[in-house]
Design a protein around this nucleic acid. Structure first.
Lengths: 190, 190
DNA sequence: GTCTATAGTAAGATAGAC
DNA sequence: GTCTATCTTACTATAGAC
């Protein structure tokens, strides 16, 4: 095994361990010691790869969010290929895909949407969600002043619905919630 | 000055100081030492009255939220007295009042809605907001299953709008945002 | 790149006098 | 009820060998 794959393995192990520890304890209560113990790595390695606890958390979020966006983008693309052209319908397809991702990665969704990250994380995450929604909301052809409020509402509703789904016990309940929320979003956007 | 008023004064000073410190530094970065310094009190007093940093934060939230709810309730009552009977209109009156409060107490609204409270605070606050919205949403005559999604959406939209207003630079911008968001809420509720 | 061992530090919490 | 002084605990972060 080459050096670089060993390093990549360590990095991956650390991220996987962090995923579990942050999910169970939240950011503040999570300890670096616990993370490295589960990863079978050392404190020094963690600092080498990430620079600290906050950066580790951010790296995890970056992975999660870019994955979610990629998933949604793919769904929208497929819908387009299938002939869908209505902007609102496309937005709903993307949102549905995002919400499915929230359910499938409940642990991460809970972690990030429950708050309590490192200083400044809330703002960063908020901005990230909003940029994503804004890009999607352009589909709706929203205009200037109205646009701000509309984007705010859509962002918030989708991400909060994702959180609420992530704490559902059964998939049925989560799906029903998604259905109902998306109906409301359709109403808002039309 | 009687003992009890002295004690009440200390309590009040501590809360006032905490309001400033938490607003500037957030929960995690705020230090007890700084709070007692500004309050002209002592660490011992703080622990005597509140039991710790987390409880101090919660007490501040309790004051804020119950004030907001009282304000909204008053507005709804007055509208009723003035002859308004339409449920949606009453809900909007309450919401408007809530949003006005967010603007007027920007510092607290920012503090609590920006995240980063003590462990479990997010959940507690979320529940508090939701209970309040649920009580109000009953006005709309929402039914069972649909109700959950509706309450979720309304809660989210109103509280997030409050946050966004609280970070506005000028009152004009904040009011415009409130107007637009309430228009959307009207659309959702009708 | 990875590890062990240690240092530094900061802050929340407590004890006990007044 | 209020205060001062102290404690103690837990953790991040670093230094330096391999």
């Amino acid at each position: 095994m080459s050096v670089s794959t060993r390093a990549a393995g360590t990095r991956t192990s650390l991220l996987a361990a962090a995923r579990g520890v942050f999910a169970e304890s939240g950011f503040a209560e999570a300890s670096i010691a616990e993370v490295v113990a589960r990863a079978g790595a050392s404190v020094g390695s963690l600092y080498h790869h990430f620079g600290g606890k906050a950066e580790l958390y951010l790296a995890l979020f970056e992975d999660y969010q870019s994955g979610q966006e990629a998933r949604a983008a793919t769904a929208v693309r497929e819908a387009r290929v299938a002939g869908e052209v209505d902007p609102l319908a496309l937005f709903l397809v993307g949102s549905r895909s995002y919400l499915d991702g929230c359910w499938q990665q409940r642990d991460l969704a809970r972690t990030f949407l429950a708050g309590g990250g490192p200083p400044g994380f809330e703002l960063l995450a908020r901005k990230r969600y909003r940029d994503w929604t804004r890009r999607n909301a352009l589909l709706l052809g929203a205009e200037s002043d109205w646009g701000d409020a509309l984007v705010l509402v859509l962002t918030t509703v989708i991400s909060e619905a994702g959180h609420e789904m992530a704490v559902c016990d059964h998939e049925d309940a989560a799906q029903r919630l998604a259905d109902n929320v998306l109906s409301l979003v359709e109403k808002i956007g039309s």
